[in-house]
Amino acid sequence: MSLLTALSRPLMVVLVAAVATACLSVLAATTGSAQLPATEEQAIAIERQLLCPQCTNKRLDVCELAICYDMKQLIRERLEAGSTADDIILFFETRYGPQVRAELPREGFNLWLFGWVTGALALVALAGGWFLLSLRSRARPAPAATAPVDDDWLDAELRAAEERDA
């Protein structure tokens, strides 16, 4: 129980309260969902996957241009006529070009970007891993006496405290 004694009771209370508040707020935030008709919810979901063809990087659902208003109407009409989300997005893509897709399709030339991401991550992981492993292989168990560092005092205090505890 050294851990509990290590942290004083008020601090524990504060911590537990903080965690509980965080959890409760998430709970409060997540309950109660929007009561929308199914198609309306679907329509907004589709709008969020499309961008305004005229503005720059503005999602369709939050754009107020006339062209976007028409697109939103069209989405609802097509949904009611039975089209799927993919069909509708494809329709707008053929009409306005691939830049209206908010999500980059993982195909064709775009794979180069995903290749770059994979390559960059692999490079950092390999070079970093190699460096860390080479450090470990050169590791010296007993360090040379170095200049006092800024939290030596804390280490000393802690050692003393641990000895008292033990």
Binding site: G97, P98, Q99, L104, F109, W112
Partner: peptide, 22 residues
């Protein structure tokens, strides 16, 4: 990479794409 990719897409294959939040 994500920021510059639209430039490459337009340069190489003349297609305007958006690398968006997703």
């Amino acid at each position: 990479g994500g920021t510059l990719f639209p430039v490459f897409s337009e340069l190489v294959q003349n297609v305007r794409i958006t690398v968006g939040p997703p």
